[in-house]
Simulated assay, not measured.
Amino acid sequence: MATVELTKDNFNDTVDQQGMVLVDFWASWCGPCRMFAPVFESASERHDDVVFGKVDTEAEQELAGAFGISSIPTLMVVRDGVVVYAQPGALPEQALEELIGKARDLDMDQVRHQIQEQQSSAQ
């Protein structure tokens, strides 16, 4: 599956769905972003059940700002509408595969419970 260009118009519809979405925040002038792009694209071809989206931070500054993106590339993993990972840095292929595996293995009921506990204790 090819990567999907994400914009402020389709971002929420894409990441709020059931399943897993990997989002690559990038820019054309960013060397590490260009190095990570083929790794991300290759993974998208191996994982048909995962949506791979790219946000051009130059074209979508409002979207990048909404997520506090200050370093690129930043990879975000959203599972069943919940952000379960968001870190800057270009990952090598093996590390990306491990991350996808770990995200698949998450018990999302437990993740939601932990989020609720954190929100309750913060109030």
Rank of each mutant, 00 (worst) to 15 (best):
M1C: 05
M1T: 05
T3Y: 05
E5D: 15
L6A: 09
T7W: 00
K8S: 11
D9L: 02
D9H: 06
D9V: 01
N10C: 01
F11T: 00
N12S: 14
D13Q: 09
D13E: 14
T14Q: 02
D16P: 00
D16A: 15
D16S: 15
D16I: 04
Q17D: 11
Q18S: 11
M20A: 07
M20S: 08
V21F: 04
V21M: 14
V21A: 14
L22R: 01
V23H: 01
V23I: 08
V23S: 03
V23Y: 03
A27Q: 02
A27C: 05
S28V: 11
S28Y: 01
C30M: 02
C30N: 09
C30R: 05
P32A: 08
C33E: 07
R34Y: 00
F36G: 05
A37L: 04
P38E: 14
S44L: 10
S44D: 08
E45H: 13
E45C: 04
E45Q: 13
R46G: 04
R46Y: 01
H47T: 06
H47Y: 15
V50S: 04
V51L: 09
V51G: 03
F52Q: 03
F52G: 00
G53T: 05
G53E: 06
K54H: 10
V55L: 06
D56M: 00
D56A: 03
T57I: 13
E58M: 06
E58P: 01
A59E: 12
A59P: 03
E62A: 12
A64S: 11
A64W: 08
G65K: 11
A66C: 00
F67Q: 01
G68E: 02
I69H: 06
S71K: 09
S71Y: 04
I72D: 00
I72E: 05
T74C: 03
L75R: 02
L75D: 01
V78K: 07
V78W: 03
D80H: 06
V82W: 04
V83S: 13
V84C: 01
Y85L: 10
P88I: 04
G89H: 07
A90T: 08
L91W: 04
L91K: 07
Q94K: 12
Q94Y: 05
A95G: 03
E97L: 10
L99E: 09
L99C: 08
I100M: 12
I100T: 12
G101I: 06
A103D: 13
A103L: 06
R104K: 10
R104C: 13
D105S: 15
D105W: 05
L106T: 13
Q110D: 15
V111W: 00
R112I: 08
R112S: 04
Q114W: 04
Q114P: 00
Q116V: 03
E117A: 11
Q118R: 15
Q118P: 10
Q119E: 12
Q119R: 13
Q119D: 08
Q119L: 09
S120E: 15
S120I: 11
S121W: 08
S121D: 13
S121A: 15
S121P: 00
A122C: 13
A122K: 12
Q123A: 12
